[in-house]
Amino acid sequence: MKRDFMDRVIDTIEWLAALFIGIVALDIFVAVVLRKFFNTSIPDSYDFGKLLLGTLIFWGIAATSYRGTHITVDLVWSSASVRGKRYIDVFATLVLLFVVTVHTFAIFDKVRGTYHDHVQTFDLNLPVWPLYALAWAGDAAAVMLIAIRTWQLIFRPERLAEPAHGREVE
């Protein structure tokens, strides 16, 4: 199957989310080992873990929102006609687009605020705005991908057609 540009973008976003998960897991593992066996800690380990956890959540939202693989409740959707399912999908995606767009503006305000207030980590006094900006980029990617998904649901629904085994497990 030929992979188009959007598939490569989504794969990149998924790899970024996976990378952030790996970094958070490594941070926690090393911090626990150092604390348990060497009675020491990584400076700002808690701050970095907390900030990267938010980052990986936003990048994960970007990937799952485009693919439509997030957790769903399909009681009404599964009993609707094909046309009704499409209306439900478009409506739900528009609501998601609105919510994530508002959230992205709020996160941008937080990035701007932490930058102008010179908020720093506790131990190393490093600025935290770059990690907030990284999280914001994931949220902005989610807005872009949800907008693309909405456009495809309305004008090119065949591009988002699910495989035969797509939703019966949910």
Rank of each mutant, 00 (worst) to 15 (best):
L34E: 02
K36N: 15
F37W: 14
F38I: 08
N39I: 00
T40M: 13
S41M: 07
I42D: 00
P43K: 09
P43R: 11
D44C: 03
S45T: 09
S45G: 14
Y46E: 00
Y46N: 00
Y46W: 11
Y46C: 00
D47Q: 03
D47Y: 03
L51T: 11
L53T: 15
G54R: 06
T55Y: 10
W59G: 04
G60I: 02
A63R: 00
T64M: 14
G68C: 11
T69K: 09
H70T: 09
H70I: 07
I71N: 01
I71Y: 04
T72G: 05
V73Q: 08
D74A: 07
W77Q: 04
W77T: 02
W77A: 09
S81M: 09
R83F: 12
G84S: 06
K85N: 01
Y87I: 15
I88S: 06
F91Y: 09
A92C: 14
A92S: 15
T93S: 11
T93P: 07
V95T: 07
L96S: 14
V99G: 10
H103I: 10
H103Y: 12
T104K: 01
F105W: 07
F105V: 09
I107G: 01
G113C: 06
D117V: 04
L124R: 10
L124I: 08
N125F: 09
N125A: 12
L126W: 11
P127W: 11
V128F: 02
W129E: 08
